Amino acid sequence: MLAQVSSLPVPALPLEAIRHYVALQRDLDDFIAVAVRSALDRGADWADISAVTAVSVSSLKSRYAKTQVARIVKNRAQRRPTFAAPATDASAVPDCESPELPSTAKPTPRDRSHAALSRALSHLHRHSGRTVRQVALWAGISPSYVYRIMSGERFPTWSTVQRFARACDADPGNLLDLWCAANGIAPDPDQPFARALARFVGALRGMYLAQGRPPLTLLAGRLGAVAPGELRVIAALLTSRSLAGAENLSWAATAALTKVMNGDVTRARVLWQAVHQRASRPPHGTA
């Protein structure tokens, strides 16, 4: 982030590089504090640590006492970027950049969904071959805001997610269920077959993006007793734009894949059932 910001002449953001530097320095300070306590626990003494850090033993003892490091860890947990609790109705979410998000003590399922969306956006950017400034310009947002939604510090609107995805040459539909889950919007179990199928496959692809698109061989090795035919369907669904075969995936294979990709099994079940309920219903009316 520092390299990216420092190379961009953005007059509107003159302090951005300093903000990133301060955040980085704070993280390093936290890391050193925990590393010192870890070294002591593993048998090092203060003199050894003093020799490595070029800090006097008395200063080390004062700075990295057990109670002091415990306080550092506690403060770090409190200041970490946490996740929004948006409205449950999509129409109630304003189409604007969100304010700073409040801190929460314990991650909720919605928090985890927000983190998954942030990881997916970050992965899309890294593999787009474009700079943050390019993505920001094409998405119509600021470079600073791009950083914040990729880190999970801010929660983007759906229109922002769509523009971000298109700026990375990606399909926004693969992010829709991640965004809905982070908003607390439940999947719709009653949709036309084509839409239900697209939502189901998009959710699987969104989970795959959130995990950084791991090698398919790694996924296959963790899926256990999934039939070879279904493994081929899964591989095709995750790596192409085709929806072929998605309606033939069993719930056992879908559940296994969802768990391996740290997805929400309950949401996946609703999306899977929507596909199969529609596929099994007789057509209505005349041609």
Rank of each mutant, 00 (worst) to 15 (best):
Q4F: 04
P9K: 00
P9Q: 01
P11C: 03
A12W: 07
P14A: 01
A17Y: 01
A17M: 03
I18T: 07
L24R: 07
L24Y: 07
L24D: 13
R26S: 14
F31N: 12
I32M: 12
I32C: 10
A35Q: 13
A44M: 12
A44G: 10
W46S: 10
W46P: 06
A47F: 08
D48C: 09
T53D: 07
A54H: 06
A54V: 03
S62D: 12
S62E: 13
R63Q: 14
Y64V: 05
Y64Q: 03
K66H: 09
A70V: 05
A70H: 06
K74Q: 13
N75F: 13
T82V: 06
T82A: 15
A84Q: 11
A84K: 08
A85L: 12
A85Q: 11
A85C: 06
A87K: 08
A87Q: 11
S91M: 09
S91P: 00
P94Q: 01
D95M: 11
C96W: 15
C96Y: 15
E97M: 10
E97A: 12
P99R: 14
L101S: 15
T104R: 15
P107G: 01
P107A: 04
T108C: 10
P109S: 10
R110Q: 15
R110F: 08
S113Q: 09
H114M: 01
A115C: 11
L117Q: 03
L117I: 00
S118V: 03
S118K: 03
H123R: 07
H123I: 01
R126P: 04
S128Y: 11
R130V: 07
Q134V: 05
V135A: 04
A136I: 02
L137D: 11
L137Q: 10
W138K: 11
I141N: 08
S142F: 01
P143S: 07
S144C: 08
Y145A: 08
Y145S: 07
M150R: 08
M150F: 01
P156W: 09
W158L: 02
S159P: 09
S159T: 13
R163D: 14
D169V: 09
P172A: 02
P172L: 03
N174F: 00
D177W: 00
C180W: 03
I185D: 06
I185T: 02
P189T: 09
P189C: 12
A196G: 11
R199P: 04
V201S: 01
G206D: 00
G206N: 01
M207I: 04
M207N: 05
Y208F: 15
L209W: 00
A210C: 01
A210N: 01
L218R: 10
P228K: 08
P228F: 08
G229V: 10
L231C: 03
R232H: 15
A235R: 11
L238G: 12
L238T: 06
R241T: 13
L243P: 00
A246R: 09
E247R: 12
W251A: 14
A252N: 03
A253T: 02
A253Q: 07
A253W: 00
T254I: 09
A255L: 13
A256T: 07
V260N: 09
V260P: 09
V260W: 10
M261E: 14
M261Q: 15
M261Y: 14
V265F: 08
H276E: 09
G285H: 13
T286D: 13
